[in-house]
Amino acid sequence: MKMQKLALAIVLAVGFALPAQAAGETEHPPRVKWSFAGPFGLYDRAQLQRGFKVYREVCQACHSLSLLSFRNLAEPGGPGFTEAQARVIAEEYRVQDGPNDAGEMFERPGRLADRFPKPFPNDNAARAANGGALPPDMSVIAKARTYERGFPWFLFDIVTQFQEQGPDYIVALMNGYEDPPQGFQLPPGSHYNKYFPGHAIGMPKPLSDGQVTYDDGAPQTVDQYAKDVTAFLMWAAEPHMEARKRIGFQVMIFLLVFAGLMYFTKKKVWADVHAHP
């Protein structure tokens, strides 16, 4: 057994310790306390509504939200708008439709079934308007961003269900604009961000204190804006998360009961084998 442990230690050392020299580089985003984290986590309706306001007033000018429809705003598990409110929001947008009888495309107010219209007609137009950098679509961005958790944290995450790397990163990015350190060569047209891989980001600092007016008394700070819009984006990426976790709990309880019953059934069936070998 001694030799076994020794050999195991050698293998583990080769596998994990030797490469430790390569660690480091970009700082990890700080952990944010999210209402939607954990097995019973729920979205904070007021936060989603505030986040949607930030998206509309700030992000929307460049970033599309093409997979979301206006109807989603009124669906259960979402920001909790009523259907009438969602309809009013939809009508504030102009959506292209057509062709009409004359064969021409035309614009009309949005309907519940419409997707959020894109700010640019195509990717190249978006690049041309943004100095060559393409503002990514935001529909699933909260799931499309992450950072390396590293050994052994990625193993603990299975048990703790920590999976908010994407939201944490987005909040950190919003807060991460600073002056470049001495000697950092910032390419023209880009901005220094502490958390962006490579640090040179095309997007200028998007948020500033007091930029968006909240009417529910929440603090009007960059940090609060960042958290609110990130929660909204998490919902946009995973609109059925609440239902998923709720069904999950029911399924787990069912399976536990079933497993318990099956265990005693198994014991009963095998009892005669153990009694009369």
Partner: peptide, 30 residues
């Protein structure tokens, strides 16, 4: 059969853990 069934349900508990609580853990953000 009954032994397999019991452990299958235990395995489903693990499966359910991933599906319902950390469905993207084993995938890639990219």
């Amino acid at each position: 059969t009954v032994k397999d069934a019991f452990f299958l349900i235990c395995f489903f508990l693990l499966y359910g853990w991933f599906v319902f609580y950390i469905p993207n853990y084993l995938g890639h953000a990219d």
